[in-house]
Amino acid sequence: MINIIIDNDNGFYRLGFQTLLSKIFLERFGKKTTFTSGIDTLSAAKADVIIMKLAPGESGVCHPALYARRKGSLIIGDYEVVRKPYIDELPLCFENMIFINRNEPITLLTERIVDGWEHCSDKAITASQWQCLACGHKTLSPQQIKVATHYSQGSSPHQIAQSLDINIKTVFAHKRIIMGKFNLNSDCELLRLLNVMNKLKNNVSAIPIMNI
């Protein structure tokens, strides 16, 4: 039995992936599947496959629940934007991740998932790869944390400058650095990433740039 987490609240989204993955694992590997939604340390420890719908830049953020996941498990990152995240910059907990885009043909999605599962079976993650102090997840300076926090609360650049008592050009400079670090191209992508970080804020190690 293959235990699969689909981390998404959208029922149609989950149903689509349940149908696809059930077919792949039954036809290609002769294995049945069981599904749950939502990631926490308990569910991650039991999962063979985790599917995450990634917001722009999210693949650079620390997700502490993934630290508990089974070391030979597969993470499937479903990204919406044209740019595939940089694999060589992933945090350690994202080891054994493959990226898919649902705009690709089903045949291509299937082959990516099959190849990813076979790779995980051949090359399990080793314990030495899970040293958090050596992790490359992205972080920002204290001042950039303050600017990002105000942006996440809906403040305008002028309001941020007044609140932090800095020049508005400095606000834009910090914003540009934040977007560059996470490879973001628009205010919409920035706000979506900040929303993801807000959801993770209850665990301090999950918040590389937020302090709300």
Rank of each mutant, 00 (worst) to 15 (best):
I39Y: 11
D40A: 10
T41W: 06
L42C: 13
S43Q: 06
S43L: 12
A44D: 12
A44I: 00
A44L: 12
D48W: 04
I50A: 11
I51A: 05
K53R: 08
K53P: 08
K53C: 07
L54D: 14
A55D: 14
P56T: 12
P56Y: 06
G57T: 09
E58G: 06
E58A: 08
S59F: 14
S59G: 05
V61L: 14
C62I: 01
H63R: 13
H63E: 14
L66T: 00
Y67L: 15
A68P: 10
A68V: 00
R69W: 01
K71V: 02
G72H: 03
G72W: 04
S73R: 01
S73D: 15
L74A: 05
L74P: 15
L74T: 11
I75N: 13
I75L: 15
I75A: 14
I76V: 13
G77H: 02
G77R: 00
Y79N: 02
Y79A: 09
Y79L: 13
E80D: 15
E80K: 05
E80T: 13
E80L: 09
V81P: 08
R83A: 15
K84I: 13
P85G: 03
Y86S: 11
Y86K: 10
D88Y: 14
D88N: 11
L90M: 15
P91L: 04
L92W: 08
C93R: 02
C93N: 07
F94A: 05
E95L: 09
E95K: 10
M97L: 10
I98M: 03
I98N: 04
I100S: 05
I100H: 13
N101C: 12
N103P: 11
N103C: 13
T107C: 10
T107L: 10
T107H: 14
L108C: 01
L109D: 11
T110W: 10
R112Y: 14
I113V: 12
V114I: 09
G116W: 07
W117C: 03
W117K: 01
E118K: 09
H119T: 04
H119L: 03
C120Y: 00
C120S: 04
C120L: 07
D122V: 00
D122A: 01
A124L: 11
I125H: 05
T126H: 09
T126V: 08
T126P: 03
T126K: 13
A127M: 11
A127P: 07
Q129S: 07
Q129A: 09
Q131K: 11
Q131C: 02
L133F: 08
L133C: 05
C135K: 04
G136D: 02
H137T: 00
P142I: 00
V147N: 04
H150A: 15
H150Q: 11
H150R: 12
S152G: 10
S155N: 12
S156I: 09
S156K: 02
S156M: 00
S156T: 11
Q159D: 04
Q159V: 04
Q159S: 06
Q159G: 02
